[in-house]
Design a protein around this nucleic acid. Structure first.
Length: 295
DNA sequence: ACATAGACCTGTTGGC
DNA sequence: TGCCAACAGGTCTATG
């Protein structure tokens, strides 16, 4: 499911009910996610207040009052759902039977917050994860230490992308999926950014840089395309292909704005291009692009 | 140091 | 209709 725009959408949905709120109760219904839940997970969270909910790459980070950080990843199919408890009789929707009350099949973790919100983590494939890390060890943690630039930060520019790709023999597609080059892109937004920048996914990553390491015009175009597509997707609440939901259950709608992803056989939307979107496989993953305008 | 393949899971889809 | 292979938004781990 989730790339940077989807994770950011989830963060924005969770922040109002988590920040400043305390974990009143935590249910660990199934602990074998990608990795086992931390030892005494529920007990270590109970009573702690969330100071801030942040995002880094595709991770959500909840700073806890006790000095630890709750690190969460949605994997391929993870989602969070927020329900608001309104007294014993339940919400009006619940009383009317519009909301199912019991936990669903893949509801693995449930947070009951002092804000009155119940937050349920659902993840059919269990590629998601939750970890507790000491704040002092966060920067050096193996999952975070090697991450590259945040693509929406000002510091992510053509020069920094060119530098990161300068000696890469691999394809541009593969380089952009590498979280140590740029942090937060996934299969969809790499395809979309390359299409917008009119760059071929099979082009060598090193062609973003001159021999001196200085960025080429391609690098400039690509950085702009990445920032634009991510910003637009966040504005749309992310892309819902199958699993992604906003925390209130609504769908994102950026999938309606895809120009290349999942559009094999359709005409290329680049003005006056006239090409056809093709699907190829790179490193076992689908790439969608227009061989006509993406050079 | 770098690049590619395999692994982890469940659910859905398309072809025969 | 049923069955099975292929595929799905990710990324760690092992291997060359």
């Amino acid at each position: 499911m989730p790339e940077l725009p989807e994770v950011e959408t989830v963060r924005r949905g969770l922040a109002p009910v988590m920040e400043g709120a305390r974990f009143v109760e935590v249910e660990a219904r199934r602990g074998d996610l990608r990795w086992p839940l931390p030892e005494d997970f529920a007990a270590r969270l109970r009573g702690q207040t969330v100071l801030k909910l942040r995002r880094r790459a595709k991770y959500l980070l909840a700073d806890l009052s006790g000095g630890e950080v709750l690190l969460m990843h949605l994997g391929m199919s993870g989602s969070f759902r927020v329900n608001h408890d309104r007294g014993r009789s339940g919400s009006p929707r619940k009383r009317l039977g519009l909301e199912p009350s019991g936990p669903g099949l893949h509801d693995h973790v449930v947070f009951h917050m002092s804000s009155g919100a119940t937050i349920t983590f659902n993840d059919p494939r269990r590629f998601g994860s939750m970890l507790l890390i000491d704040r002092s060890e966060l920067e050096n943690h193996r999952l975070l230490a090697e991450l590259g630039s945040e693509p929406l930060a000002r510091s992510f520019d053509a020069a920094s992308l060119a530098r990161a790709c300068q000696h890469k023999e691999t394809s541009l597609k593969t380089a952009l999926l590498d979280q140590s080059v740029v942090a937060g892109l996934g299969n969809i937004y790499v395809c979309e950014a390359l299409h917008r920048a009119e760059l071929s996914p099979t082009r060598k990553a090193s062609t973003l840089a001159r021999r001196s390491g200085a960025p080429t015009a391609r690098a400039e175009r690509l950085v702009s395309a990445i920032k634009e597509v991510l910003a637009a997707a966040i504005k749309a609440g992310g892309s819902s292909l199958r699993d992604h939901r906003r925390t209130n259950g609504d769908l994102g709608y950026f999938q309606h704005h895809f120009r290349a992803y999942d559009r094999a056989g359709e005409p290329c939307p680049t003005p006056s291009c006239g090409g056809t979107i093709r699907r190829i496989s790179q490193n076992g993953r689908s790439t969608f692009f227009c061989p006509r305008c993406q050079k």
